[in-house]
Design a protein around this nucleic acid. Structure first.
Length: 573
DNA sequence: GCCGTTTTCGGCCCGACTGTTTTCAGTCG
């Protein structure tokens, strides 16, 4: 089995955990974590880089020492120093640090004083009220640990961005009713439009923090108040979602907004830059010596640091700061750049609305084209069409087009890629269509090599246009199938194919890093809703959020082009 | 362990809050 970037990152992080428990130099710990993060974010497998003798120390946070360790991990799956560390401590001990309220110090104490090294041991001891007797622990910590163990058991804490939006909307509306409260912003990964959100970071501008927090604690869906201070209140909603409410003063709002939008890595990088310029940056503002520089807009923070403005979606310390310095930040795609949707279903297969309704809705959204892409016969569970039905649908579309002005319905299909890499309709049929989305719905469990070969073979078919939901993942429910995206993108480039960014809230497939890879490899993307009813077409905006996180510009996205240009791009010969 | 236009040595982001203490350690973001 080849060692993947995520495996390398996991080993480096494990080392960091063990070092932390051993109370090692915290900067050494950070060095391991930084390197892990760098490796995880690489567009190419680090194994390939090593094979091609590329210099790993060129990447941020990787020096000679760590480069050697990464090489060792690639060839052996681990590195000797990590193995030696493990002999002194139980392998699973770092796992305790995933539990809320347990960091390196407590993990070590639990092991030394009570022999606890696994969550199961911990749960038993906590239930038997033995934790409270360990010096430094007490009854309250014991209780908190127990409740977080129980919570971990029944749910993954990160929820879909779209679910977070649903929960945030009524809460924001409620907060707006408090007097003395004027600006309310959802910061954190919500504002950065990450595909999942761990908790809601709500910032409120108020002259009367206590009153604002009192009002917040009166919200009907609050299940538990975790902590409450002068400016910060942490709570858990009935849904299990954690909410941090921070009250900021009017003159410190923008600095706070920036700080709590993150990401942490972006902030650290900006602070470092600040330090070089003799500036101190924290959540309260920017300071030159003791003097605070007035910040009346978030943009000013970047101006002061002599950078172009970086939008929240790019604040991940993945090269945006260098780009901002050199005036080469991408001019990111926006929802209004989209001229049509290239993947929707109708009631002909598993959609809920008929052809006319879907077209009418697309017109209301301001689009100038819409591709109808119902399922092919293989997907029986979705009432997949046979050739006769597909041909009938094409006739209907032709007729509808005759009655439309300034709008074109494209004859499309979502045709299955069969296990052997062939397509579910013969080319003689596919040829009659304007556009084909080609997707995998079966045989998810092929090996990485076979799955990759399957898709590449399909792409060699001249009627292959767009690879639908390229990794098949369902966030929090189904892992992506094993594929080599880099090879697939290379094949797409070679054959004139495109990849979809499927905007269904639990797909968002491709993810942000993969979009970035596509951009770097000059493979264009279709951002499509995969709607099964008219309402579903509005999910496209989540796809745009993801595309922005992947640095995509309008020109990188095929459905920002005119209908004429788009149709031309669908013709490969 | 990384990094460098004041540095190859000496820095490396830092404040809020809780709980267990009796002035602070640990965790979190």
């Amino acid at each position: 089995m080849p060692v993947q970037n995520s495996d390398v990152a996991a080993q480096l992080n494990r080392m960091a955990d063990l070092l932390e428990i051993e109370d090692a130099n915290p900067f050494r710990v950070r060095a391991y974590r930084n390197a892990a993060r760098t490796v995880k974010g690489l567009a190419r497998p680090v194994a390939d880089l090593i094979k091609h003798k590329e210099d790993l120390t060129a990447f941020p946070g990787i020096g000679k020492d760590l480069a050697d360790k990464i090489k060792e991990i690639i060839s052996t799956g681990t590195f000797s120093q990590l193995e030696e560390m493990k002999t002194d401590l139980p392998t699973e001990l770092p796992g305790l640090m995933n539990i809320e309220h347990i960091g390196p110090k407590r993990a070590k104490l639990l092991y030394q004083k009570a022999g606890i090294s696994s969550p199961e041991d911990l749960k038993k001891a906590a239930r038997a009220k033995k934790i409270r007797n360990i010096k430094g622990f007490g009854e309250k910590i014991e209780q908190s640990i127990l409740s977080s163990l129980e919570q971990m058991a029944d749910q993954n804490r990160r929820i879909l961005l779209s679910d977070a939006e649903e929960r945030a909307a009524p809460l924001t509306e409620y907060l707006e009713k408090a007097s003395d409260t004027d600006r309310i912003t959802l910061a954190g990964s919500f504002r950065r439009r990450k595909e999942t959100v761990g908790d809601l970071d709500i910032l409120v501008c108020s002259k009367n923090p206590q009153q604002t927090i009192d009002h917040f604690t009166g919200y009907k869906d609050i299940n538990q108040i975790i902590s409450r201070g002068g400016t910060l209140c942490r709570a858990v909603l009935d849904s299990g979602l954690h909410v941090d409410l921070r009250v900021l003063p009017p003159d410190g709002y923008n600095a706070g907004l920036h700080h709590f939008t993150g990401s942490k890595a972006h902030n650290i990088a900006l602070r470092k830059r600040g330090t070089k310029m003799n500036l101190k940056i924290n959540e309260y503002g920017i300071f030159k010596g003791k003097k605070q520089i007035q910040v009346t807009q978030e943009k000013q923070i970047y101006e002061i640091l002599e950078l172009d403005y970086v939008v929240p979606e790019l604040r991940e310390n993945k090269g945006e700061i260098q780009a901002a310095e050199q005036n080469r930040l991408p001019c990111l795609v926006q929802l209004q750049d989209i001229r049509g949707d290239l993947h929707v279903h109708t009631s002909e297969t598993d959609g809920l609305a008929g052809l006319e309704k879907m077209v009418e809705h697309a017109q209301q959204l301001g689009y100038t084209y819409l591709a109808i892409t119902d399922h092919s016969r293989q997907v029986r569970i979705a009432n997949g069409m046979d050739i006769r039905r597909l041909e009938k649908q094409m006739e209907n579309i032709d007729q509808l087009n005759d009655s439309l002005d300034g709008f074109r319905v494209l004859k499309g299909v979502e045709v299955d890629i069969l296990a052997d890499g062939s397509l579910d309709f013969p080319n003689a049929v596919l040829k009659k269509l304007d556009l084909r989305v080609c997707s995998i719905h079966f045989s998810h469990n092929l090996s990485r090599k076979k799955q990759t070969e399957r898709i590449i073979k399909a792409m060699e078919n001249p009627f292959f246009n767009i690879l639908g939901h390229p990794t098949g993942r369902l966030i929090n429910r189904r892992k992506p199938y094993a594929v080599d995206l880099e090879k697939i993108m290379a094949a797409a480039k070679k054959n004139g194919c495109f990849l979809e960014l499927n905007a269904q809230p639990d797909r968002l497939d491709l993810n942000d890093d993969a979009c970035r890879m596509a951009r770097d490899m000059h493979v264009k993307i279709a951002v499509s809703s995969d709607a099964h009813d008219t309402g579903g077409m509005s999910h496209l905006r989540l796809g745009i959020d993801q595309a922005r996180r992947g640095w995509l510009e309008p020109a990188d996205i095929i459905n920002t082009y005119s209908c004429q240009d788009l149709v031309r791009m669908m013709t490969r010969r």
